[in-house]
Design a protein around this nucleic acid. Structure first.
Length: 222
DNA sequence: GCGACAG
DNA sequence: ATCTTGTCGC
């Protein structure tokens, strides 16, 4: 059983059922329209671990110029459990998303999409709830079935879940560790690779995510 | 049973 | 995730 910040408890079985419902609502067809606005979202925590701060940065695409930034702070009310990250961070992220004046056509989420044991990464959860295209971009893998891509920007290798490809290990910069990208909702594996590269400039992470991380990380400081 | 384990 | 400065290498 898991204790939440509301004083109640939930079982892992219940959470797994919730993930299965979310996964059934996800779709992986091609993007309906080319994006004009792309955003990145991330969460940072205060030192005492009591509060979480979500940050979203919306950028014009393909220019990558910042159009809007929002942050939302809230008390943490769910523990971090590998495989169930979205139950801890999605509520706060959704609350921050509601404050946006400019809704993005594509959202990069800091974490996995379908490259997850049950294809239920946080990018899937957010994409289904918000009903928008999302891409999960993580700094570390959850699934281990993949080989390393060569050390060249753009090199990629598939990530598998039971023989089925669910994501990519992508080298976004030469001489730097790769990132782990996978579709969250309303986007294909090919487009996931394409847009991740199109939004990555001189750093390891795609600009929307890099700036969102910078934003919430700065705001949570005290 | 043991080890691994997004943020 | 968070606590933290300098330092090695391209």
């Amino acid at each position: 059983m898991i204790l939440t910040g509301f004083g109640d408890e939930v079982s892992l079985k219940h959470l797994i059922k919730a993930q299965k419902r979310l996964v059934q609502s996800a779709s992986y067809k091609s993007l309906e329209r080319s994006p004009n606005l792309i955003a990145g979202i991330d969460v940072a925590y205060t030192r005492d671990g009591l509060f979480g701060v979500a940050g979203i940065v919306v950028m014009k695409f393909p220019e990558l110029q910042v159009v809007e930034e929002v942050v939302e702070k809230q008390r943490v009310c769910f523990p971090y459990i590998p495989g169930f990250l979205s139950f801890r961070e999605a509520p706060l992220m959704i609350k921050a998303f509601r404050k946006l004046k400019h809704k993005p056509d594509l959202l990069f989420v800091d974490g996995q999409g379908t490259a997850h044991p049950r294809k239920a990464g946080i990018a899937v959860h957010l994409g289904v709830i918000l009903k928008i295209p999302t891409i999960g971009c993580a700094k570390k893998p959850l699934l281990k079935s993949f080989s390393m891509p060569e050390d060249l920007k753009g090199a990629a290798k598939p990530i598998f879940l039971e023989k089925e490809q669910v994501g990519w290990v992508l080298r976004t910069k030469k001489g730097v560790k790769p990132v782990f990208v996978s579709p969250g909702n309303l986007i294909t594996l090919e487009e996931t690779l394409d847009y991740t590269l199109k939004t990555t400039t001189k750093y390891r992470l795609p600009e929307p995510i890099r700036l969102a991380h910078q934003l919430c990380s700065q705001v949570k400081k005290y």
